[in-house]
């Protein structure tokens, strides 16, 4: 089938960008969205044109690199799926699809569809860790953790840092990401010693990167490919309020 793409092309952060129309031929339903873009690139290269820059790595939904805004939806129309897990069987011959980069001040554009998400790394580095002695693995049952807590922490930890929450948020807020990262430690005994310091530091890092304020639009939860829940944002709010009051 043929797919008409309107893709954001921009040489670099300083150059002006615009949507450019391409028709990709030979698309089959089994292709992933990224393979369809690979096909476009093969056709562009054959014509001697500059191939489209876009990010990807694992292509199996676990690394969070493939961040595209597809027809105004982060990671495209599917629920709880990354762009690399979106397949062309979703589309039919002649469809017109608009592809744009994730947009946020915190995610500066590098080229075409590639943005720099290192802001997330800096937020994580500000407090998303536990300071612990890393010797041999300890006895697994030395620290008792209720099963539901372990599950909730694990759910929060399944955030792959893709940035779809920011991209989908009308305010470009990074609250769902930060909430997931704060929660995964706040829920576990190992996270307690640095509990207050962590949330204060990560909140500060988040604001410093220029992400917006959460106004509870809940588009983040709807866009998240890993199903990270809003209850994590509520937890982040509680943790922040608590830390502001009790930390010394």
């Amino acid at each position: 089938m043929n797919i008409t793409l309107k893709v954001w092309r921009q040489k670099n952060a300083a150059a002006p960008g615009a949507l450019v129309e391409y028709t990709v031929s030979g698309v089959v339903p089994e292709m992933s969205f990224l393979e369809m873009l690979d096909t476009l690139n093969e056709q562009l290269i054959a014509k001697g044109e500059d191939p489209l820059a876009f990010d990807s790595d694992c292509r199996e939904g676990i690394c969070g690199m493939c961040n595209l805004m597809i027809d105004g939806q982060a990671h495209g129309p599917d629920k709880e799926a990354t762009t690399c897990q979106l397949h062309m069987r979703r589309y039919k011959d002649g469809d017109v699809v608009t592809v744009e980069p994730f947009r946020a001040k915190g995610f500066p554009l590098v080229k075409d569809l590639v943005v720099d998400r290192s802001a997330f790394d800096r937020i994580q580095a500000a407090g998303g860790f536990v300071s612990t002695h890393t010797g041999g693995a300890g006895e697994a049952n030395a620290i008792l953790i209720p099963h539901d807590m372990a599950e909730k922490a694990m759910d929060a930890a399944s955030c792959i840092g893709c940035g779809a929450c920011v991209a989908a948020c009308p305010n470009a807020s990074a609250m769902l990401f930060v909430a997931a990262k704060v929660s995964q430690y706040a829920l576990l005994p190992q996270g307690q010693p640095e509990r207050e310091k962590r949330v204060l530091a990560m909140r500060e890092a988040m604001d410093k990167e220029g992400f917006g304020h959460c106004t509870n639009e809940y588009e983040c939860e709807a866009a998240c490919p890993k199903g990270i829940k809003l209850s994590n944002i509520a937890r982040l709010n509680r943790e922040f309020l608590r830390a502001t009051i009790v930390s010394e």
């Binding site: 608009t98 947009r103 946020a104 989908a168 009308p170 305010n171 106004t215 639009e217 809940y218 866009a223």
Partner: peptide, 20 residues
């Protein structure tokens, strides 16, 4: 105002997933 500044360049197409 801060939220406006948080996305200096907007989307050409913005649909979301119906949470609003």
């Amino acid at each position: 105002l801060a939220n406006r500044a948080a996305r200096p360049e907007g989307y050409q197409v913005y649909k979301g997933k119906g949470a609003r």
